[in-house]
Amino acid sequence: MAKIEDVVGRYVHVELDGIDYRVYYEEAGQGIPLVCQHTAGSDSRQWRHLLGDSDITDNFRVIAWDLPFHGKSVPPEGTNWWTEDYKLEGHWFMRFILEICAALDAERPVFMGCSMGGQVAIDLALNHPASFRAVVGIESGLDSGDFDPSFFHHPRISNANKGNMMMSIMAPLSPENRRRETAWCYSQGGPPVFRGDLNYYFAYDTNEKARQINTDEIPIYLLTGEYDWSVSPEMTKQLVAEVPGASFKTMKKVGHFPMSENPVVFKEYLMPYLDEIRGVA
């Protein structure tokens, strides 16, 4: 008998500003909704280990989507999207997350995101605290620092560069096949998408606002890998200094993509947070 996983993939239509987005998502499990946002330039495959882990899906309804233009969520019908430079904007990003959660009947979910997903976790906590039970920010900071992303969409540099660059923010101690898979997914993105997502990532700046977050209203859990140079543990500590009620751990021996580069180590750090969210810690 063939091995068939419990993860189910479907499409949901999300309407935003009159545009119909056909969005691919995967889900598994039951219980508290746990919605997962992938990193810039990648897709929901990053969460496949979480979706397939019964220690998590026994208590959580895990949902992971591909943002429009990512993975199996092709660009929307009815727009000449090819005539505009793809750019992710923060206000649209947050509204999309609220809309897809509503469309999937994920009521007051736990939001978990990595990298740009980790930054939007903080933006959601600031702007929509009542809509979420808690946020888990992976590789979150007060801001995203400075970096010139022009090489990420360049006619003389192939998509392989994206994967190779991502190898630089993963830990050498993470299993090589997991790191290579993470990089592989990066090399499959639509050419302008990674750089376009970084439009939001580098515009993200909560230096003047993060202290407004009330962690009694929305608990914040943070995890950052020690080998991540793009959002270093020091950058997350700066966020924690502004949001003292946030829980934070530096993840040893992992980098920027703990859920896909080293799911075993990631789980060791994540489970205590999920137990606390469930009230069984």
């Binding site: 090489f151 540099i157 560069n161 994967g163 190779n164 190898m167």
Partner: peptide, 12 residues
């Protein structure tokens, strides 16, 4: 540097 970025995987 553009060439180094294009061949980052080989250089590494």
């Amino acid at each position: 540097i553009e060439g180094a970025m294009a061949y980052l995987g080989a250089l590494n």
